[in-house]
Structure formats: C-alpha cells, structure tokens
Amino acid sequence: MSRQQIVFNNVSFRYADDEPWVLKDVSFTIDSDQWVAIIGHNGSGKSTIAKLINGLLFPDQGEIVVHGITVNAETVWDVRKKVGMVFQNPDNQFVGTTVRDDVAFGLENRGEPREVMVERIANSLKSVRMSEYTLHEPHRLSGGQKQRVAIAGVLVIQPDVIILDEATAMLDPKGRKEIMATVNDVRAEHDLNLVTITHDLNEIIQADRVIVMNEGQVWLETEPRDLFTRENVLREIGLDVPFVAKLANQLQLVDQAWSQEPLNQKELLDALWTYNSTK
C-alpha cells in the first residue's frame, strides 16, 4: 500500500480567468503519519493549497489525490471524510450553543448512533483538555480554548488528515504555544497526518518536513533544521527564522568551530555548554 497520503501533480489554480495564477504547476507528496508545514508570506499560495486538499476549491490544471481519491466535484464528500480543517477564526466554525453540541455537529451529519457520539465527544474533548467545558458556550471561551474546541470538532470525525490553516494567527504567544503543544499531543495519540499552514516559523520546529511557497510555486522542500540555516535567502522572500536559529547562525559567522543547528532553547543551551567545554 502506498504511503502517499496527499499528492499534488502539476497543480495550477486561479480564482478567475482574468486574474493571475495563485498556484503555478505545483507538485509535492505528503506521506502517511507525517507532519508537514507549508509556509510562505501572504499571497504565496499556501492557504489555497489547504482549500484544494479539502475540496473547497478545485484545480484549474493538474490533479490532487487524497488517500487514493482524486479530488473533484463528484468525490468531494468522500475526501472530506478523510480531511478535517481548522481555520484561523474558530468563531466561523461554531454552530452549536454549547461545546458538546458543537463537537457533536459532524457526527450528527453522518448519522452516528447516540452511544457512539457520546463516547467520541468525550474522547475528543479529553484529547484537547477541554472536558470540563462541555456545557459552556463556545463564544464565551478564550481564543486558545476556542481553537481547542475547533480541533475537537475535527478530531471527533476521525479524519486521516488534519489541516491547520493559520489556526494560531489570532492568538497571543502563550496561546500559540499551548495550541501547538495540544496539536502535537493529539497527533501522537491518534497517529494522524498533520498539515500546518503558517507564516510563523516558530510553529514548524516539530514538523517532519517543510514546504516553502513563494509566488505560487514550491520554492524549497526540506527539514526545519536545514531551513533555519538559510536565514539570508528566507529573508529575501519575506520570512524570518526564530531567535534561536538567528543566534546559532551568528555564532557560526563568529567562529567556524561552531557547527550546531539547534531548533529550540534547550538544544541551544546544550550546544553552548558543549561548545564552551571545548574551549
């Protein structure tokens, strides 16, 4: 069985015939169980990719295959059983008067038996640490809590792929950190494909692969550790690396004996300890 969960074959897209191409001959694959981050500046085409995966849009040219299903108007509902999306503003996704009702919505649409719904809702809310808010009104929650409920609403339908489309953009730094920690825990627990769409490179540290979009094309495919060494070229396309990577890159310029590429503060501290021990 193929490990390819999502395949883009020479995909091009524009929103109208008289408008420029948003995506131009884009090809990539995402394997099962991978966390892939798709990054790029505003207008690079990354959010359009998310909507194409879920069948909210269809390509003008090329082919998209999700879990062995070619995405088109006839297959879109089959595809959406495999793919769940969490958007930037969770308020736009809420349909229930309570957290429980909102998480139940997807299951009700699928006609799941009540006993199945009760169990899945409880498990999904537990996974995102929102069990005690079952009877709360979604709109009265904090931004981070709302996103957790939105993730639970996707998780409850048991998709193979979860897409986070700028899902932390409206949160403060603490909220962003909490949501990314929740997402990582959920992925590990449920063995999911995760696709994150973002322009914040702090959010891609734990990803397996990174696809960098620029002007509607795949500019680079690599791993986070390698990406952060390309600070100068990333700045040219409107992106900036996290502080830890900046500091490591500056140390490399000062002393070529420094060869570490830390991804987070702990790795940086460990590298500095080793580096100083050799002096």
Results as ranks from 00 to 15, higher is better:
180 M>C: 11
48 T>V: 11
233 V>F: 00
66 V>N: 03
108 E>D: 11
184 N>D: 14
252 Q>R: 15
158 Q>F: 00
8 F>Y: 11
248 A>Y: 07
74 E>L: 10
140 R>N: 14
261 E>K: 15
242 P>V: 06
166 E>F: 08
277 S>N: 14
78 D>F: 01
34 Q>A: 11
7 V>I: 14
252 Q>A: 15
119 E>N: 09
164 L>N: 03
117 M>A: 08
92 N>M: 14
132 E>A: 08
268 L>V: 10
121 I>L: 10
131 S>D: 11
28 F>A: 09
70 T>F: 00
190 H>R: 15
23 L>R: 09
135 L>P: 00
58 F>H: 06
175 G>N: 05
230 R>E: 03
194 L>N: 08
1 M>Q: 13
80 R>C: 07
189 E>D: 13
52 L>C: 09
161 V>C: 12
262 P>G: 11
15 Y>H: 14
272 L>N: 08
222 T>P: 01
122 A>E: 14
198 T>K: 02
181 A>P: 00
224 P>T: 05
124 S>W: 01
64 I>A: 08
262 P>D: 08
134 T>G: 00
89 N>P: 04
229 T>V: 07
69 I>Y: 00
162 I>W: 00
273 W>R: 12
24 K>N: 15
42 N>C: 02
207 A>F: 02
50 A>S: 14
62 G>C: 06
228 F>T: 05
124 S>E: 01
203 E>F: 02
49 I>N: 07
186 V>Y: 04
9 N>H: 12
106 G>Q: 06
116 V>P: 04
149 V>M: 07
163 I>K: 03
274 T>R: 12
275 Y>K: 04
11 V>P: 10
164 L>M: 15
35 W>D: 01
213 M>D: 08
219 W>L: 03
152 A>K: 04
157 I>T: 15
109 N>C: 09
47 S>V: 06
245 A>W: 01
72 N>A: 07
206 Q>V: 07
255 D>S: 10
95 V>A: 12
214 N>E: 12
250 Q>P: 00
109 N>W: 11
213 M>T: 09
80 R>W: 07
3 R>W: 01
102 D>I: 03
268 L>G: 10
67 H>Y: 10
191 D>K: 14
84 G>K: 04
254 V>A: 12
56 L>E: 06
183 V>W: 02
63 E>C: 06
197 I>W: 03
239 L>I: 04
36 V>I: 12
42 N>R: 04
197 I>R: 09
276 N>C: 10
203 E>Y: 03
125 L>R: 04
14 R>W: 04
204 I>R: 01
130 M>L: 13
257 A>W: 00
275 Y>S: 10
85 M>N: 03
216 G>D: 04
238 G>W: 04
192 L>K: 05
9 N>R: 15
266 K>H: 10
253 L>W: 00
247 L>M: 14
136 H>E: 13
169 A>R: 06
184 N>K: 12
244 V>N: 05
2 S>G: 09
43 G>Y: 09
199 H>L: 06
172 D>I: 06
63 E>K: 14
172 D>N: 02
32 S>M: 10
223 E>T: 15
200 D>M: 07
70 T>A: 08
54 N>A: 15
137 E>A: 12
179 I>F: 06
7 V>M: 10
190 H>N: 13
217 Q>T: 15
96 G>R: 03
